[in-house]
Nucleic acid binder design. Structure first.
Lengths: 216, 216
DNA sequence: TAGATTGTTAATCGATTAACAATC
DNA sequence: TAGATTGTTAATCGATTAACAATC
């Protein structure tokens, strides 16, 4: 029996970007050293969990001292593959797409929108943020040519699945979907959803009488 | 020993809006009856988990048949407190705030942006979507007057915590935060984050060499 | 040195799944 | 009736936490 290497749980991977965000926040205060205790307070997560999560990837701290903020941040960036920026394609140059194009928060956190597509002829050739809107019929060729591996979908719900199929066909491996529908893609393609309504609905449960009337 | 009523796990509550979204999708196809099997296929969730989750709240299906789509949808809406729309305040009338104001996806899913605030004098009094931008110095009084219980934060990161403090002071109970910082609020206040970068960073882990070189 | 905090183990806790009687 | 699918129990699986030796 050889030792079996255990794959790091996805739920742990999902917390790493949050840890990274906290470290960026702490660093922006000029703080040089932090601890699992301090990070946990920012996040409402137990210090033990943070240490356990990090232990999947190595030893990054010093007993008695804690973690060097800059060093741990670099390590997390390396683990998440954020040493260089990733080119991302955006499909859908409507209101949401435009807002994302103009959103400054991607640069500096590992991402760069490198191509924009739409199917509305009247939009093709126009520029958003100095980037020409391309027709979706050149999506596959452009994505291949540019070596793009990630995409964001900002088209209306009815068209989201069709766009997802095109992206899969173009060998895109990761999709951030802003349309409030659940995409069906092959298992090797990663999908994350951005749906503000889901977050709001989650919270209304606790604000409405249901939880308090029927439970604690 | 009296029977102890177990509080439904938060992770279950978090899946209900997803189930609701799938039901809306299924209903939009004109389908009348569905099953845990079919819902699970849409979501990549096991049928057993869906049934278990629903069983926390009652019995909504028929053996041998499945679930009436319209009925189950109504029940989920009731459980989540979505029988009526919730008024939501939005703080930050910048690019992100404007895009959200114009986003059509809130109406019809339980939410209505009822007030917009900013601290930029040049914006006060202007209208977005027919709603006058108010100064943050009337935030507390307006929110009280209108009975608003939820808010969205779309201000720059540096100001997000300050705004969160104001919202807590105004007795807001639930906050959807678009700024990429972790807010510190009292435990009775609910917070959800919208940070597209977190979703992207989660996926780059799997696209980068780290996971494949060191693991599976 | 004394105090603090890590990394890790073992125990606990909680969530998911498999299986099946009930029944439409 | 035969087939399908629910709701629920018990078993399994996995994640979190408590505790502490190691050590800065």
């Amino acid at each position: 029996m050889s030792k079996v290497s255990i794959r790091t749980p996805d739920i742990v991977i999902g917390r790493l970007p949050i840890y990274l965000r906290v470290l960026e926040h702490i660093a922006s205060n000029g703080t040089r050293v932090t601890s699992s205790q301090e990070m946990g307070e920012h996040l409402g997560i137990s210090p033990a969990q943070i240490r356990k999560d990090l232990s999947h990837f190595g030893e990054f701290g010093k007993q008695g001292t804690g973690y060097d903020v800059v060093y741990l941040r670099k390590q997390l960036q390396r683990i998440l593959g954020l040493q260089q920026d990733w080119d991302v394609a955006l499909i859908g140059a409507g209101a949401v797409g435009k807002a994302i194009m103009r959103y400054a928060g991607f640069r500096g956190r590992g991402f760069h929108i490198a191509a924009v597509f739409d199917n509305d002829d009247s939009k093709i050739g126009r520029k958003i943020n100095n980037l020409k809107i391309l027709h979706v019929n050149v999506l596959k060729s452009t994505i291949h040519q540019m070596g793009i591996r990630m995409a964001m979908i900002t088209v209306p719900s009815e068209q989201a699945q069709k766009v997802a199929d095109m992206l899969v066909e173009a060998s895109v491996e990761a999709v951030l979907n802003y349309a409030p529908v659940n995409l069906i893609v092959p298992p090797e393609v990663h999908v994350q959803h951005i749906d503000p309504v889901v977050g709001l609905q989650h919270m209304t449960y606790y604000l409405s009488s249901y939880s308090t009337l029927t439970q604690g």
